[in-house]
């Protein structure tokens, strides 16, 4: 019961802080205006999120896929440690 009350108090503090800070994205930047104006002309895709992720920021997405690829290789090596060692023994 003590835990539940403490959780409620934490949620209350969080809501107070959020309402005190106000809305998050009031300020407009140059990049935002450029993307919203030029996304259809420059990339041709109607979905602006996809235009930003896969066209304006292609290098970032490529880096993200590289991170995923490295993580998958690590998981693959850890999960198949035994079978890789057996293959090495067979080959000599």
């Amino acid at each position: 019961m003590k835990k539940t009350i403490s959780i409620f108090v934490a949620i209350g503090f969080f809501l107070i802080i959020v309402t005190a800070v106000g809305s998050f994205s009031e300020k407009k930047t140059e990049v935002q205006e450029y993307y919203t104006k030029n996304s259809i002309e420059k990339t041709g895709s109607a979905n602006i999120v996809n235009a930003i992720v896969w066209d304006f920021r292609s290098y970032d997405t490529l880096g993200e896929e590289t991170v995923l690829f490295t993580a998958i290789i690590a998981i693959f090596l850890i999960a198949h440690k035994k079978s890789i060692a057996e293959k090495k023994e067979v080959r000599g």
Partner: peptide, 30 residues
């Protein structure tokens, strides 16, 4: 091409397809 057709996005469609294959095969391995 005109927007809102399938080939309107330039190379975005190929990027989407190959990114989907990368993500799908990685999660299948996990």
């Amino acid at each position: 091409q005109t927007p809102l057709t399938l080939w309107s996005g330039g190379v975005t469609i190929f990027l989407n397809l190959f990114g989907a294959i990368v993500v799908a095969s990685g999660l299948v391995i996990i």
